[in-house]
Amino acid sequence: MSRPDRTIILDARALSRALQRMAVEVLELAHGTDDLVLIGIQRRGVELAERIARLIEQDEGVVVPRGALDITLYRDDLETVGPKPVIGETRIPGALAGKHVVIVDDVLYTGRTVRAALDELADFGRPKRISLCVLVDRGGRELPIQPDIVGKQVKVNNGERVDVLVEELDGRDEVDLVRQGAPT
C-alpha cells in the first residue's frame, strides 16, 4: 500500500482570501445584490455559498438569499450506481423568476453535476440569468460548461483528485491534491 500523498493547494488563509475575491466578483457579475440568489450544491457547495453570502452581507449590509440544491435525482448515471446515494436537502429561497442565480460548488470537473443542477433549477422557475462560481476548477470537462468565477485553477494529473475540506463539515478549511488510493 502506498503512503497517503496529500499536497495542500490552499490552506485556511489562502482559502479565505479566495472566497473574499469570489464574493467581490459575484457582486460585480450580478451588479449588486438586488436580484442575487446564491445556490450551493450539496454538500460542500452549500457551506461555500453560505460563506460568500456572509462576506457580501458584511460589505453591503443586506441579506443575500441563499439556498441548497441536491442534484442526486437529476444525475445522468443514477441508473448505473449500485447502492443508491443518500439524498441531501434541497431548499430554494422563494421564487427564482427574474433572479440572477449564482450556483456555488466546490470542484468543477466533468460538468455533469452542473448540467444536473441547471435541469433541476429549471423545474423551480425561470431565472433571468444563471452563473457558475466554483472554488476549484480542475479541468476535465465532458460537457460544454464553463465557470464564470473561479477561486483557483488546478492542474490534475491522472490518478489524482481534489479534496475540499470546510470547517463546518471537516473541522478545517483546506484544499488538497490527493494521489488516488490515499484514504479519503
Binding site: 435525482l73 448515471d77 443514477l78 441508473e79 448505473t80 470542484v107 470537473y109 476535465g140
Partner: peptide, 22 residues
C-alpha cells in the same frame, strides 16, 4: 421506489473508468 429501482452496478464500473461524477 427510489431505493429498490434496479441499479446496474456493472455499468458503474464502466463509468468509473470514464471519469464518473465529481
Amino acid at each position: 421506489l427510489y431505493l429498490l429501482a434496479g441499479g446496474r452496478p456493472e455499468l458503474a464500473d464502466a463509468a468509473k473508468g470514464a471519469g464518473g461524477p465529481e
